[in-house]
């Protein structure tokens, strides 16, 4: 099994391109000459200092990381703001992360650089670690039911998919060639075991 998933985003990573396409609200700090097109609502040729724009994150992130005087002052997108962070803190497993953003973690890795308090960093880790059990349970127990992954963001989905296919292989190995190791009837009947995988006990 390849370890493709442990990728670092590279130039050709489609996920990275899609994730960094997301727009973040930001404020222009200096006059930007000849870039009036950035602001579709104004007819001017230049963008004036103080204008508020929504720009794709790849543009803003590269502007911030070069080390010269920044042109834009980015803000956090709303899903990483306090109110949403509280939701995630309360119970990350109940959240439909896919609705928050398809690339919640990828985008988070970009925007957490705009956050000086490191709250975003903490919430990303918290979300992932709490939801890991959910992903693992889904991968281990769902039959080929495509709806289960709807609440997962893309990164989680990929982990879920490889986990799921590995689990299917293991289960079919346990079942194949008519050699079934069965759990005791008593166990199945009493529902003593939390996870009674019906497939395994037929």
């Amino acid at each position: 099994m390849s370890l493709q998933l442990s990728y670092q985003p590279n130039y050709y990573s489609i996920d990275d391109i899609l994730a960094s396409q997301e727009r973040v609200p930001c404020k222009v700090l200096q006059n930007v000459l000849g870039m009036g097109k950035l602001n579709p609502s104004a007819e001017d040729k230049d963008v004036k200092a103080g204008t508020e724009l929504e720009l794709p994150v790849w543009l803003v992130a590269s502007d911030c990381s070069i080390g010269r005087q920044p042109i834009f002052a980015p803000e956090l997108p709303k899903i990483y703001k306090e109110a949403y962070r509280e939701i995630l803190k309360a119970d990350a497993t109940a959240v439909d992360l896919h609705k928050f953003n398809v690339y919640f973690y990828e985008l988070g890795a970009y925007v957490k650089q705009f956050d000086r308090k490191d709250d975003v960093h903490a919430i990303l880790l918290h979300t992932f670690t709490t939801r890991f059990r959910l992903i693992m349970d889904l991968a281990h127990n769902s039959e080929s039911n495509p709806t289960v992954e709807q609440k997962l963001d893309m990164l989680e989905r990929r982990i879920y998919r490889v986990g799921h296919s590995a689990r299917v292989k293991l289960n079919s190995w346990l079942l194949e060639s008519g050699v079934q190791l069965q759990a005791a009837n008593m166990v199945t009947n009493h529902r003593k075991r939390k996870r009674v995988d019906d497939d395994l006990f037929n």
């Binding site: 370890l3 998933l5 442990s6 992932f128 670690t129 992903i135 991968a139 990929r158 982990i159 490889v162």
Partner: peptide
């Protein structure tokens, strides 16, 4: 591969 992947992402 679920655990190694999760750890890598972390």
């Amino acid at each position: 591969p679920i655990l190694p992947h999760a750890l890598n992402q972390l």
